[in-house]
Design a protein around this nucleic acid. Structure first.
Lengths: 337, 337
DNA sequence: CTGAAAGCGCTTACAG
DNA sequence: CTGAAAGCGCTTACAG
């Protein structure tokens, strides 16, 4: 069986390729009768147009890149589900990349995308991303770029975030209300803007409650679970160990459970724990985890809606604005119920 | 700034486009001096070749589709990480699709991929997939197709699975050894071949232990967590409730925890639980969950290695063979420790 | 070692 | 309503 293309269909139908193309695209210029003949043959031969020929010709690919720093993570999975639900309705495809929190990987991925491979990029930056020239270059090339959650404030485009300052503040206030006085803030090392807002909320809450903040209450963790568990159990073995922990990232809460287990301490009796987390099974943990969960699916679908609307324009331009969606604090036993 | 392409570079350098192309592709035909001139200009202008022009011309896209039935699922996330780690080394891109267990969605996605959009497809079929014509058409078109975990036995191609029969057998034997006599098997409704092997192992183990199998011990669940929790709590409220549960899918174990919680029963005292699951935090649940975990990352990376090797050939053909990797039973408290 | 030409499979102004 | 032609940005046989 020869490969089927428009030329082949045209020959079979004794029509010009241009007519076939227009018929398939339901052009108003083509008679109903011709359209039907063309479609009938195309269907019977199971013809599908070559997407790359079309992309090349139309200078758009109907493809969007999604770049995330971690794949095994409920938050990012839910965001992508939200994106996909919208984009698939518009016939868009999703190229998904995991940077594994490595800025070098992020840079490499971005370099693949500067050349028209995708019509837009939706991303959450890696925890290492201090040098952002590669991100600027996307924007300079005029390629639509939306950030979510871990945003790059320096680049003037649309960003979707959650109310991190407020969430950090409320979570910390909650721990204080439960009697904590020595509250450790766990974050990924070198985390960027988003981590900073959570941290700022935390510090403000300490301040508002008259608790003097100490520098080493901020614990920069690594991307290795083993290292984090070791680090945290070392901290918990200390005499002046924390009585409360706020984890800025889900994986650090999990490391805390493991570390607490190792040291023989008890959550919430010895140390109370709150974490930013989109785990669905937070309530099944021993003990159930108090979480700040982000509206991940909505973030994804809102991003995608915005993008779909913009991409209809000839020259899609994303406004420089920040859209904030609210997270939710769900109090469970890990913080004293 | 004009769009930069080979023609533009050629004009600037007073060379032919063909020479520029060859220089950029490091062709042996081009002098070192010319290569350096070309690369210098390309780099300085931040030139990246148009992937769609290249795809069209070379009739290959350096893109692979991965189709999964569920995104918020540790197993599939780990498989994709495994695939990505290999494919990115070879410069391949990943188009990822979630069928949400819907065969209609699966069919639609497959129809997008029949036209050269991807060089190969790696997939785990949806739980509803009884009609497989759309899958056959991929294979008939000669497009390389690899199945993993949830395979389609009727299609002669390479498949990666785990030792599901054995795992089902061992898990059931373990429950029996722990004193269970009325063991329910939870599966997604209409689940295909893979579920069948797990089921077969389960039934064989009952048989080998002289436990008469009853038909309604097989519980077909839905894709709705709420419905499943309701169904399971109804079952657990019965007088002749099960004393052991084997969940073929992670989400059904989670539904079981919720249902047990609702009914006021206790795991493992009243009912013992084992589940196929790749949750990293199985040991942090209350109580810790006995799991059969699959080597997900390896499945992904092995699939991808196979594919990368095959795609180097002009006419890549995947042998009809099944590769079985071993799962691991990890006994924890939920099954009596 | 370099260049001119053809062609991958589409779409769309232009012509009739 | 239909067709001939050009062109999207590449690569590669063919020529020299």
């Amino acid at each position: 069986m020869p490969d089927i293309n428009i030329k082949y269909l045209a020959k079979k139908l004794k029509l010009a390729p241009s007519t076939v193309s227009r018929a398939l695209n339901d052009s108003y210029e083509i008679s109903q009768a011709t359209k039907e003949r063309v479609r009938a043959l195309a269907d019977s031969l199971n013809y599908h147009p070559n997407p790359y020929a079309r992309s090349l010709r139309e200078q758009k690919s109907k493809t969007i890149a999604v770049i995330i720093p971690e794949r095994i993570n409920n938050f990012f999975g839910q965001v992508i589900d939200g994106i996909e639900d919208i984009t698939q309705q518009h016939g868009y495809h999703l190229l998904i990349y995991n940077t594994r929190e490595e800025v070098e990987t992020e840079r490499r991925i971005v370099s693949y995308l500067l050349n028209g491979r995708v019509d837009a990029i939706v991303m959450s930056i890696s925890g290492q991303a201090s040098d952002i020239d590669h991100l600027k270059s996307i924007h300079q090339k005029g390629r639509p770029l939306i950030f979510f959650d871990r945003i790059c404030p320096e680049i003037p485009t649309t960003k979707y975030i959650t109310n991190d300052y407020e969430s950090g503040y409320n979570a910390t206030s909650h721990l204080i209300a439960k009697g904590c006085r020595k509250i450790f803030f766990l974050q990924l090392s070198q985390e960027l803007s988003i981590g900073k807002e959570r941290l700022r909320g935390y510090q403000e809450a300490l301040n508002a409650n008259g608790i003097p903040f100490e520098k080493d209450w901020i614990v920069p963790c690594s991307h290795s679970d083993e290292e984090n568990i070791q680090l945290l159990s070392d901290i918990l073995y200390q005499l002046d160990r924390p009585d409360g922990i706020l984890a800025a990232v889900e994986k650090l809460a999990i490391a805390t459970y493991h570390a607490v287990g190792k040291t023989g301490l008890n959550i919430p009796h010895d140390v109370k724990l709150v974490s930013f987390s989109n785990m669905k099974i937070a309530e099944l943990l021993a003990p159930p985890l108090t979480t700040i969960s982000q509206p991940a699916y909505e973030i994804g679908s809102e991003c995608a809606k915005q993008l779909m609307a913009k991409l209809k324009n000839q020259k899609p331009a994303l406004e420089d604005k920040v859209i904030t969606l609210p997270s939710q604090l769900t109090i469970r036993e890990s913080s004293g119920g």
